[in-house]
Amino acid sequence: MTFLEIHDVHKHYGDHHVLQGVTLEVARHEVVCLIGASGSGKSTLLRCINALEPIQQGEISVDGDVVSGQGVDVNRLRRNVGMVFQSYNLFPHMSVLRNVTLAPVKVGGVPKAEAEERALALLDRVGMRDKAHAYPDALSGGQQQRVAIVRALVSNPQVLLLDEITAALDPELVGDVLAIVRELAQDGLTMLLATHEMGFAREVASQVCFLHEGRILERGAPAQIFEDPHEERTRQFLSRVIASGRL
């Protein structure tokens, strides 16, 4: 059953037509990887799904409810749709624990003690429990990103959007973060990832979409996309990735 439905979405920044009619269905428990060159619209698509960017045309629905357009309670939508960013975006003036409990306490109405208990349990799962009272600037990039994932997960979102979450990390820290995402995929969390980690995409994705100039040019099972791409553009993109040693 389709859980997240994106239908003919168009997005303009002024004259720049970033998304030119994107259509995509995601079923529950699916992991969809968005690949493509920088500027192909991967990040924009993710930001449109949780309404950080308004769309000019088309429709997005989550769990049968239309969430694009005017009058939607975006704050409620966003509690169902978690997001993790490339540059972590932790709040530097708050401890790790406050970063994680802010949304459940302030928006979800969860009692502070209960929220902290849940936050600590999740931080424990990603190996960050002992840093609960540290501040983000005292952490490495990989540690910050693990906290950011916990922050997005603590409100039990139904779908998680991951926007190139390892792109800003030192190579030796990427593995820790990907291990967490792999675990979440095994738990059956529905996820959309924009990523440059082709090996990882191939391993965890149920569906891979190749974006080119604001369109999904090709989509299919990872084996098909990586081994037998139908489109010339996909083939070119993948051969450049292979040449750079990332696959």
Partner: peptide, 8 residues
């Protein structure tokens, strides 16, 4: 973006 994405 981070704060709004959390539903604030």
């Amino acid at each position: 973006a981070a704060a709004r994405s959390l539903g604030l």
